[in-house]
Every structure is written in structure tokens, then in C-alpha cells.
Design a protein around this nucleic acid. Structure first.
Lengths: 129, 129
DNA sequence: TCGCCATTTCTCTAATCTCCGATATATTAA
DNA sequence: TTAATATATCGGAGATTAGAGAAATGGCGA
């Protein structure tokens, strides 16, 4: 039980105190997602979502994994933060917007990334159809 | 299990994401305090402390009780917030600043309010001593 | 190499927050 | 009533934040 400064806890709570970031956390409960998948559910500019993800990672809540040109974010709270997230889930589960997001995410996860991102020339789906 | 909007939860977390407000919550764990007592521990302007207390009350964490010219604030989370506070206490207990505050509060609680507030003419302690 | 594209970083604007000191309100004592 | 006092509210200065779009970065495929 080490002695801690107050700032990290304050920063964590400040990070949690934003609707988009709470919604992102709720999404990632069902497994990792790449930025464009998260973005298509949250509906903010890609750069804004990226900034929120960076902040969530800095707060020690997420881990990132690069796969080609995509970056996948995963819920991975560092030691000592699991209890705070655990108490948050039941509250998030009661929120209408979160329920809708999770439902949308189920579809997004099944959609090929090329289709999701609206490529001009789909990569592997029928060429010159 | 009612359906909720996201804003109240966001507001609560935003309220918690401030060092002075966390410190105030930690102080009130040991029982109610009036504004001038809290202020003498926290060390911000009285008006600033009053504003923080108002915000904590709006978030549903505190109750107030007027006694003469003093206003006492008490920890009284409304239904559904106890679990969030409960998970917070162990984290606050590890914070150096919070430990110091609690120690200072023990002295403050024993000090007569007139002495604490530095009255020119003490009210009931020896008259014209 | 070149072009495309997902993501990040940068730049700027608008909005919000924090703090203080001044003022207002309300209570007590005389 | 008047003076003193605790707290709340107001107004403004300075800092921080959220958001979008532009530009930069880095991977992939041709």
C-alpha cells in the first residue's frame, strides 16, 4: 500500500467524466475494436476519437495493438483500476445511449473494414463487379 | 433497473475529477463539518470552497444542515451512488495529501469555531481577558 | 517508387472551469 | 437597529478542454 500523489486519481476521474469516453469504454467491454469501428459508432471526427482513445490509454485504461494500417484498442486497466471500472459497468448498463451503442457495435464488428470505411475499390470482395 | 440518460453519470464523474473536491469528500468521511472548518483545511478562498460544496451537493453526494450562521455539510450520497464512493475510499486512503488533511481535520474539529475563524472578540471564552 | 488510406498530430476556435475578490444575504450579539 | 460574521452569489481573468479540419505519419498494394 504505497503512498500516492492525488493527481493520477484526479486525472483518471476527469478522463471518465466525458460522455464519448464512457461510451468508448462500454463498447470495448465486448472486445477490441479499431479506431474506424469505434468512430463509426460514436460519430465524432476521426481525429477527435483518436484523441479520446489516447487519453483513455494515458489514464491506464486501454492497451493498443497495431495490425497493418489499423490500430486496435482493448480494455486493459492497469493494476488498481479494475475495481473502479467494475463499479462503473452496472451504471453504464442502465444508460440508453450505451445500449444503442453496443447494439450498433455488434453490426459494426461483422462488417468488413473496407465496407465500413467506404473504400472506392473494395479490396477482396469482387473486382470490377 | 430504469433507463437513464448519460449526463448525470458524466456530471458525477466530472465532479469527482478535482483534487479539492476529492479532499473534501475524504474529510467528510469522519463526520459533518461547516464551511469554515473545511476551508481551514483545504486552504482555498472561502467562496471557492463554497462553490465546490455546492457542486458536490448538486451531484448528489452531500447534504447540508444550517445551524445559526453556520452551514454544515455531511456525506450523504443519494441512492445508487454509494457503490461509487465505496470503491473510491481505498484509493483516497493511499494519498499523502488526504492523510495530512484528515490529521489536520482532527485538530480543527476540536478547535472552537470562534478561535478557528479568528474573531476579534471571542464569544464565550473569557470576556475582556 | 507511388498512391491510397487509417491514424495521429497540429492549429485554431468556442466553450467551460477554477479561482479570487467584491458584493449580497442571513444570522447573532449588543 | 447596528456591527460583526459565515456563507452564497456575482463578475471577471486566466487556464483548460472539446471539437473540427488540415497536415503529417506510416503501412499496404500496385
Amino acid at each position: 500500500m504505497a503512498i500516492q500523489p492525488i493527481e493520477p486519481l484526479v486525472d483518471l476521474l476527469k478522463t471518465l467524466g466525458h460522455p464519448a469516453r464512457l461510451r468508448i469504454l462500454a463498447l470495448l467491454r465486448d472486445g477490441e475494436m479499431c479506431v474506424c469501428q469505434i468512430n463509426s459508432v460514436i460519430g465524432l471526427a476521426a481525429s477527435t476519437v483518436s484523441e479520446h482513445l489516447t487519453e483513455l490509454r494515458r489514464a491506464g485504461l486501454l492497451a493498443e495493438r497495431k495490425d497493418g494500417r489499423w490500430v486496435y484498442y482493448e480494455l486493459k486497466p492497469k493494476a488498481g483500476l479494475q475495481d473502479l471500472l467494475a463499479v462503473l459497468w452496472p451504471h453504464l448498463d442502465q444508460i440508453q445511449r450505451v445500449k444503442e451503442d453496443i447494439k450498433a457495435a455488434r453490426i459494426v464488428r461483422k462488417t468488413p473494414l473496407g465496407v465500413l470505411c467506404g473504400w472506392k475499390k473494395p479490396q477482396r470482395l469482387s473486382i470490377g463487379g
